Amino acid sequence: MSVDIRFLPDDKTVRVKPGMTVLDASRKARVHIRTRCGGNASCLMCKVTVEDDGAGLSAPGDNEVRKLGSMIDERVRLACQARAIGSCVVSVPEDPLKAAVRAQLAKQREDDWL
């Protein structure tokens, strides 16, 4: 048996065995999710947003709930802790450095028009 995890905005889908973390699935799909702690839920960098009803992911554990607090209610999960139990869709936030570069380039284009 296998399940599909779809990663947005890359629109990449990967088929994995149930129980695999979203972080490990992202590596298999070649979707970059930032992390520093190697999947120990200590850096909190691997946050993703669940785009569907979340039924395809394991319930948040006590450690994840303590770390994320009210963000859990906003469908935010730690990719290193959320395990696939069914097919699901998650959104990976843009890397802050890439976002800054993109914003700077957009500003330059706008300035060139003036």
Rank of each mutant, 00 (worst) to 15 (best):
G56H: 08
R6A: 02
R75D: 10
R77V: 06
P60F: 05
K17D: 12
R30V: 00
L23F: 07
A99K: 15
M20N: 08
L8R: 14
V89Q: 11
P96L: 08
R83M: 01
S58Q: 08
E64L: 07
G69Y: 03
D11C: 05
R66V: 03
V31I: 01
D112S: 08
C37T: 09
N40A: 11
C80I: 07
K12A: 09
T49P: 06
M1A: 12
A100H: 06
K47E: 06
V101C: 07
M45Y: 12
D95L: 07
R36F: 14
D95P: 08
M1I: 09
C37N: 04
A100I: 09
S87E: 09
R36T: 08
A41M: 14
S70V: 13
P18T: 12
A25T: 06
D111R: 09
K28R: 12
D10R: 07
R109F: 15
L57M: 10
G56F: 06
A59N: 14
A55E: 15
D24W: 13
L105Q: 14
L105P: 00
E64H: 11
C46W: 00
D10G: 01
W113Q: 13
L23K: 13
R6Y: 02
V89A: 06
L23D: 09
R102W: 02
P18L: 02
K12D: 01
A79W: 04
L97M: 13
I72R: 02
